[in-house]
Write a protein that binds this DNA or RNA. Structure first.
Lengths: 96, 96
DNA sequence: TGAATATATGAGCAAGTATTCATATATTAC
DNA sequence: GTAATATATGAATACTTGCTCATATATTCA
């Protein structure tokens, strides 16, 4: 498969979203359903600031979506491609 | 899906292998069949040193395999999970 | 043997990234 | 209005990473 440079860059950006353990755990939590920033922070034992920074990047890549309710913001996966990538990646990791 | 920290790290390492445009193009070339370091370098317009450094990382992750023949070394994909990840990623990139 | 070719590798550096801390914005309750 | 809560964001910093350059190893050929 011969890729154009542009597609290679886009692909690399997509995989970069999953190239950090915090983000992988964040996304795997969202695979169970939507969750607020504070809940995510608590589950991941990260500061809310750090979580918010990560979510910003994922939002800009349209991998997660935000829904505001009161003063909370609930995040969910914007696309099922991501969870399919995570599942496929797990296949490799588990019996690779 | 709740991941252990270890699995999250392993997953992130796997996706990190695809988080760079040079490596994505490298892997996409290997999806067509085995190729020597010098051929890869020429196709990608990278120095052989840079390609060799990248291949080293991919080798250590068991994503590519090396076969020595004379003074050339031919690399190929060690696992079809990787190409499946690239294909799935392309789905997202193309009509995301 | 020595020269040429193909690849590998360590050091060093520039660019990128994940986090923390301080601060800003927005919403709710009083 | 003020205080408290939830999230967002910019700056600074420590860490990581991809490359280049120089050098090492391995193989072929004369």
């Amino acid at each position: 498969m011969k890729l154009t440079e542009l597609k290679a860059i886009k692909l690399a950006e997509l995989f970069s979203a999953l190239s950090d353990a915090s983000r992988v755990r964040l996304i795997s939590l969202l695979m169970e359903g939507e969750m607020s920033v504070s809940t995510l922070a608590e589950e991941l034992k990260m500061t809310e600031s750090a979580v918010s920074h990560q979510l910003r990047g994922l939002r800009q890549m349209h991998l997660v979506r935000a829904r505001k309710s009161g003063r909370k913001v609930f995040y969910s996966l914007d696309d099922d491609h991501v969870s399919r990538l995570v599942s496929l990646g797990l296949d490799h990791v588990q019996h690779g």
